[in-house]
Simulated scan of single mutants.
Amino acid sequence: MKENDKTSHRAELMRDIVAMVNQNPVLKQAWQRKKEKSIQNTEFEYPEHLSVEHIDMGLFKMEYLTWNGSENPYVILQLHGGGYMSGLQGQYRKMAGLYAEISSGAAVLSVDYRLAPEYPFPAALEDAVAAYKWLRDKGYESDRIIVVGDSAGGGLAMALCMELRTNGEPMPAGLVAMSPWTDLAITGESYTKNREIDPVFGADGGGEMLLHSPYIGENDAKNPLISPMYGNFTGFPPMLIQVGTHEMLYDDAASVAKKAKEQGVPVRFTVYEGMFHVFQMSGTVIPESKRAWEEVGTFMHKVMGQW
């Protein structure tokens, strides 16, 4: 499904700003410093109706966000992006708040999993599995868990489901993947076709991070638990996959959506015209991102049914 044929003027402006920041060394360094500071600062100020609990799992940490007074029995397991090299930052905490809002008060567990290059595969996957089991131990049945992820986190969400299936564990109720990175072997045509128009990874924006991912380590990049595109999706829960037309990772999303559908998985695949990698971080600032979040909310309410 394609969401509109035209890009809004506000989105075009945002895309230009993203490109300028990523392709200007001085601005990019300033942004990286701000992001690192955000990662180190765990005292994010949520609205008064939200409460956060910091959880130390030993090898990694998590943040459990709840809506005060909510009777929603569902929980959202958020696996953040960042190329498996960048930790949980303020922007993902904002997204956690948005997930709580659009789901009408579901709890949100954000996983600050271990990072490459110090911790290559399977560290992030092991932490995601541990977080899922933590939720089960806390009393959430699998059909009350919705897994979400963006970029690397989107691929990790799919790898998590594959690992759960292999281990005989029950699947979550649904899966949301925003601009998922599903092919660390970098075989899609969009990696070259969209390089000049991708404001995040294109030109000098950071494509090298994709081409030489330390997360792979000494393993085969086509291992489905590293690159879910090469795996089997039979038995997966309903999936919502969103991607922008200006992404080098476009084929990562499109290929998985096609393959999963062919294997019997209910998939809603939405393409946003003119949008860049994880444009949903724009929240409600641009119309396309606002519509994307509304779509996520609709999907979640469909998965949750009547509770």
Results as ranks from 00 to 15, higher is better:
residue 3 E to S: 13
residue 5 D to T: 14
residue 5 D to F: 12
residue 6 K to Q: 14
residue 7 T to I: 14
residue 9 H to D: 15
residue 11 A to C: 13
residue 17 I to P: 00
residue 19 A to Y: 15
residue 22 N to V: 03
residue 23 Q to Y: 03
residue 24 N to R: 11
residue 24 N to E: 13
residue 25 P to S: 06
residue 30 A to R: 14
residue 31 W to N: 14
residue 32 Q to T: 12
residue 35 K to D: 12
residue 39 I to A: 07
residue 40 Q to D: 10
residue 42 T to H: 11
residue 48 E to C: 05
residue 53 E to N: 09
residue 55 I to P: 04
residue 56 D to M: 06
residue 57 M to E: 15
residue 62 M to A: 14
residue 63 E to K: 03
residue 64 Y to S: 08
residue 73 P to H: 10
residue 73 P to S: 11
residue 73 P to A: 07
residue 76 I to S: 00
residue 76 I to F: 00
residue 76 I to T: 06
residue 77 L to S: 00
residue 78 Q to M: 11
residue 79 L to P: 00
residue 82 G to Q: 07
residue 84 Y to T: 00
residue 85 M to T: 14
residue 88 L to Y: 09
residue 90 G to D: 14
residue 94 K to C: 11
residue 98 L to G: 04
residue 100 A to T: 10
residue 101 E to D: 11
residue 106 A to E: 06
residue 109 L to I: 00
residue 109 L to G: 02
residue 115 L to D: 02
residue 115 L to G: 01
residue 120 P to I: 07
residue 120 P to D: 07
residue 123 A to M: 07
residue 124 A to W: 10
residue 140 Y to L: 01
residue 150 D to Y: 04
residue 154 G to W: 03
residue 155 G to R: 02
residue 155 G to H: 02
residue 155 G to E: 01
residue 160 L to N: 00
residue 160 L to G: 03
residue 164 L to R: 02
residue 170 P to N: 08
residue 174 G to V: 06
residue 174 G to I: 01
residue 179 S to Y: 05
residue 179 S to A: 07
residue 181 W to V: 02
residue 194 N to H: 11
residue 195 R to M: 13
residue 197 I to Y: 07
residue 198 D to V: 10
residue 198 D to P: 13
residue 201 F to D: 08
residue 203 A to W: 13
residue 205 G to T: 08
residue 206 G to C: 13
residue 206 G to Q: 10
residue 206 G to F: 09
residue 209 M to A: 15
residue 211 L to N: 12
residue 213 S to V: 05
residue 215 Y to F: 14
residue 220 D to S: 09
residue 223 N to Y: 08
residue 225 L to W: 06
residue 229 M to Y: 11
residue 229 M to V: 15
residue 229 M to T: 11
residue 229 M to R: 13
residue 230 Y to W: 09
residue 235 G to P: 04
residue 236 F to W: 01
residue 236 F to Y: 07
residue 237 P to L: 02
residue 241 I to V: 13
residue 243 V to D: 04
residue 246 H to W: 11
residue 248 M to P: 08
residue 249 L to Q: 07
residue 251 D to E: 11
residue 251 D to K: 08
residue 252 D to N: 14
residue 253 A to Q: 06
residue 253 A to C: 02
residue 254 A to Q: 03
residue 255 S to M: 09
residue 263 Q to R: 05
residue 264 G to N: 05
residue 269 F to Y: 13
residue 272 Y to T: 06
residue 274 G to Q: 05
residue 274 G to I: 05
residue 276 F to G: 03
residue 277 H to R: 00
residue 278 V to S: 04
residue 281 M to D: 09
residue 284 T to M: 10
residue 286 I to F: 01
residue 287 P to N: 06
residue 291 R to W: 09
residue 291 R to D: 14
residue 292 A to D: 04
residue 292 A to F: 05
residue 296 V to M: 14
residue 297 G to I: 06
residue 302 K to Y: 11
